[in-house]
């Protein structure tokens, strides 16, 4: 092969692509085009949030104004079919808070201990079984949870505690189970991302494995763990189907752990079908309140996750 041959061959070679910049204008056009496509995709999510916000608030706020902010949020009676109708959602606010609080009381301790176990104690063969199981738990539709609650938990609670079994306690138990995968997943990731050097430092001082994990590794993961708990709370407060099926769904002030209750979500979905006029708008306004809760939670979440580690300088 002569030198001239090899040069001409190189020119036609596809490796030319790497040596010669493509024509400037085409390249810039493609890049600009790609950028616009990405931007449009990103805008879709933003638009969705903004449109939901605008429509929910536009629909709900006039109703709140008409009912009166205090009568709406603080009113203890929800009697949309009475004459005159009363639209106080305080019972449902309490219902949502109680059920969610109960779910946290059930789900957080179990979830955190499971996460610690999975990240730091679990033997590899067991982990291979446990991890997919927990992922599966996250994928079960809420209606299936609801059915499980109705068929299994409600009768047990009815037998043990009396009443009809549809109550705050049952709902909290079920929701506690439902938020487990969220809490376990995020907490496990947070615990695993703690630098191994912390653990080594602790055991090198003579700490046992349990002490090193409990007093150094776990506290070092706390902001990630809190973020997981907050996401779990968000899931619990927004849950509708499963809660309706086991919480009793009575729109009245909560009367105790084993009495029925209605949550904000349940209130909306139960009455939306046959509501009209101010009743309808009051339900939309209920969604505004729910939205407010979620906004507060997300705010907490982003404050926690954006918090920079307090390192003096990063290497």
């Amino acid at each position: 092969m002569t030198t001239a041959d090899s040069i001409s061959e190189r020119k036609s070679d596809s490796s030319d692509f790497f040596h010669k910049p493509p024509s400037g204008r085409t390249q810039r056009f493609i890049e600009k085009g790609a950028e616009i496509v990405f931007l449009l995709c990103a805008l879709i999510s933003i638009a969705a949030v903004v449109i939901i916000c605008v429509y929910i608030f536009a629909g709900g706020i006039p109703a709140i104004a008409e009912i009166g902010l205090f009568d709406f949020l603080g009113g203890q009676r929800w009697k949309p079919y009475n004459e005159p109708a009363e639209y106080g959602i305080f019972p449902m606010i309490l219902g949502s808070l109680y059920v969610t609080g109960g779910a946290v009381a059930v789900g957080v301790p179990v979830g955190l201990l499971t996460a610690i176990f999975m990240a730091r104690f679990c033997p590899a063969p067991l982990y291979k079984v446990l991890k997919p199981m927990i992922n599966l738990l996250a994928g079960i539709p809420s209606i299936v949870y609801g059915l499980f609650g109705m068929i299994v938990i409600v009768p047990i609670v009815r037998n043990l505690a009396g009443g009809d079994g549809n109550c705050i306690f049952t709902a909290a138990l079920l929701l506690g189970m439902m938020i487990l995968p969220t809490i376990i997943g995020l907490s496990e990731t947070a615990i695993r991302s703690v630098p191994e050097s912390y653990y080594e430092g602790a055991v090198a001082l003579g700490a046992t494995h349990e002490r090193a994990v409990g007093t150094v590794v776990f506290p070092a993961a706390k902001s990630g763990i809190l973020a997981g708990v907050i996401l779990g709370i968000g899931r619990a407060i927004g849950e509708t189907m499963a809660v309706i099926m086991v919480a009793g769904n009575q729109a009245r002030m909560p009367k105790g752990l084993f009495a029925g209750v209605r949550t904000l979500t349940a209130n909306i979905v139960t009455e939306m079908g046959d509501a009209g006029g101010l009743h309808y708008d009051a339900l939309v306004a209920t969604a505004v309140v729910l939205f407010g809760f979620i906004l507060i939670l997300n705010l907490c979440f982003s404050v926690l996750t954006n918090k920079k580690p307090k390192e003096g300088k990063s290497k």
Binding site: Y198, A204, L205, R211, P219
Partner: peptide
């Protein structure tokens, strides 16, 4: 007992993410 008597300093400084006081007190508390 061994690790209490044979201490270790690592290549990369690895203070715990807690106060200076608690870092030093960690071992004695243990």
């Amino acid at each position: 007992y061994l690790r209490k008597n044979v201490g270790m300093v690592f290549q990369k400084p690895n203070p715990f993410p807690m106060s200076i006081y608690d870092n030093i007190a960690y071992g004695p508390r243990t």
